[in-house]
Design a protein around this nucleic acid. Structure first.
Lengths: 347, 347
DNA sequence: TGAATTTATGAAACCGTTTACATCGTGCTC
DNA sequence: GAGCACGATGTAAACGGTTTCATAAATTCA
């Protein structure tokens, strides 16, 4: 394995000069530079990353922590992260499946000295203290954090606005008995969607009925199970809002088995707009979340911090969502408009 | 940022001792060890990865190169890779979207000194030379390589067997005029599936009709476009095998628009078994590919090489595929069996 | 032409670890 | 009680780069 010394010897210069050439330092004559390049390519030399980051204490690598790597959503987030990072000459050290706070701390510890910053979608159980602890050593940008951390930038999904719009849309179609299949307790987006649901009802002057909210866990099976519970309610709901598409799909399948037709007997709306949503029969009305943009935005924030660590200004951004009206809600898609729902409406 | 020296000073020992403690070296008395641990946790110390890999020339990191990070398939591959790597205390340095050979070389170069091995799903245009060049510095395991590289381990998909089984299945249902929407030229799996299709026909004694093979590019739109072409053929095919599910889905959608019913007027079969396949109406008969296992197996091979670089034995593995009989082919799923199609049948 | 400035290059310190080798007690053996 | 083996610890040399500072050569300027 050729080192900088080998190249220096071959090119007949000092190692300092070789280093200068590889770092684009101008204080090197053109002749010398070409000699160095020739020697380097002859030896197939390229600076050793570890050695380089040891001296510079820069790795040009971003750490990426995700609770899981499963499914449409996360893969899009990663894609957004990877693509922007790559364009800006950063590498990405990825790690998935971090269920506990302990897990997260171990993972960040293992990354020590290898990354310049951490883009993290933390598990729901994460605490302010642990984030603070990590931030003492590294810039951190959070994706969809369950809480605000003082001085920490983050990017979130406009879950609240989206949910509120769903309810408003259903009300507009004439529904009054609107049920919800909620996401797991403790998950921010689940809770924000629930909050948006309640707000939507309130704004329509519909008194909330607690028995119309069924607990789910974001998985298809819990959507399936929710159907049975909801069909027992009297008066029976005429519309159901599921906190994500997976549960909506499970729900629709259960409704189908129960002999009900969607949207005629029951309107269904989901959240996330996973690829499958448009292929359902009927196509699922849902709220589109741009996961790719989510990842990109997080990296953009991180790069801003890295380019000027002193001037780090806390930025709490929100990714807009879009109501995708299809058929499962009973509206005529051609008539409906896809409204963008931004953060400005989030309170 | 606390270094090993700070810990040594606080604990009242030398840096060698601290290092020993962190590396599980036994030649340290219990008392000293606890002192070191206390000092370390008080200072929130953990060894710097870059420095460590500089001295040991081991990074405990696997490089992962993929042509893209988009969609079901790749995300599952990554998940398989990440999960096994994590379990074995390896990190993963991921990089997607490498369209050209040049791209790949740049990426591997940038990883120099940061990774112990490279798991790569190369672009179709990759050459033997470039792989050889990379292998001079690093162990490499290829995923679905377009060719065999001397002495290089790899994991592939049993595309040939799968395709052959699809044709056999269709023939068993009574079809004789079987069309195919092929994948992009130059892609191994596309070509293997085409080869399997031809073999399947041959084994059934059906003479191939060149005009029944339509070129696609693995994308939905090309499947959609293929429908028009195939409906013009006389005699009209009664079944179509698409080289992947995306194209099959596009095809079905076009057939629907043309007023044909699947499977009654035309049987359709795909390949990959993406999540969506089972939610199609009718559910899509397809060949299941375990992308997660693909990623896992690649990492397993890499770990074997790393644990004993001398004893590197070339292993060319194949991931079995399974024919998933659903409704789009016209068979009664209850009757059909899901046969596992292994590498042993690949010739 | 000589001093002042600029430009190109080299020498050496340093980054934070690991590890080979040296050192120093301590308890055993004969 | 000298000699020895052994266990616990320290010293110092790598590892492969970057960067500060010094220096020699080339250029500018009066």
């Amino acid at each position: 394995m050729a080192t900088i010394r080998d190249v220096a010897k071959t090119a007949g210069v000092s190692i300092a000069t070789v280093s200068r050439v590889f770092n684009g330092n101008t204080a090197v004559s053109e002749d010398t530079a070409t000699q160095v390049w020739t020697a380097a390519s002859a030896l197939d030399y390229w600076p050793n990353g570890a050695a380089r980051s040891l001296t510079t204490s820069r790795s040009n690598t971003l750490g990426v922590l995700l609770p899981d790597l499963y499914g449409d959503f996360f893969s899009e987030v990663i894609r957004g992260i990877d693509q922007l990072a790559k364009r800006e000459k950063y590498q990405t050290l990825v790690s998935g499946s971090h269920a506990s706070v302990e897990d997260v701390l171990i993972a960040t510890r293992a990354m020590r000295g290898r990354i310049d910053g951490l883009v993290m979608m933390a598990p729901d159980s994460i605490t302010v203290e642990s984030v603070t602890k990590i931030r003492r050593r590294l810039p951190v940008v959070l994706i969809s954090p369950p809480f605000a951390v003082d001085g920490c930038s983050s990017v979130s999904i406009a879950s609240f606005s989206g949910a509120r719009a769903v309810v408003a849309h259903l009300v507009g179609l004439g529904h009054r008995e609107i049920a919800m299949v909620a996401g797991p307790a403790g998950n921010v987006d689940a809770e924000e969607r629930l909050r948006g649901y309640h707000r939507g009802l309130a704004e329509a002057g519909i008194p909330p009925r607690a028995e119309l909210v069924v607990q789910g866990d974001f998985r298809e099976s819990s959507g399936y199970a929710a159907a049975a519970a909801l069909l027992d309610r009297r008066p029976r709901p005429t519309a159901v809002f599921a906190a994500n598409d997976c549960m909506a799909i499970g729900l629709m399948s259960a409704l189908g088995n129960a002999g009900l037709s969607v949207p005629h007997d029951m309107a269904v709306v989901g959240f996330d707009n996973i690829t499958m949503a448009q292929y359902m029969r009927p196509p699922l009305t849902t709220v589109h979340v741009d996961a790719y943009a989510l990842g990109q935005k997080a990296v953009r924030l991180m790069l801003d911090i890295l380019s000027d660590p002193e001037g780090e200004k806390v930025t709490v951004q929100t990714i807009d969502v879009v109501l995708k009206v299809r058929c499962s809600c009973g509206a005529k898609p051609a008539v409906a408009t896809n409204t963008m729902l931004g953060a400005e409406a989030d309170q």
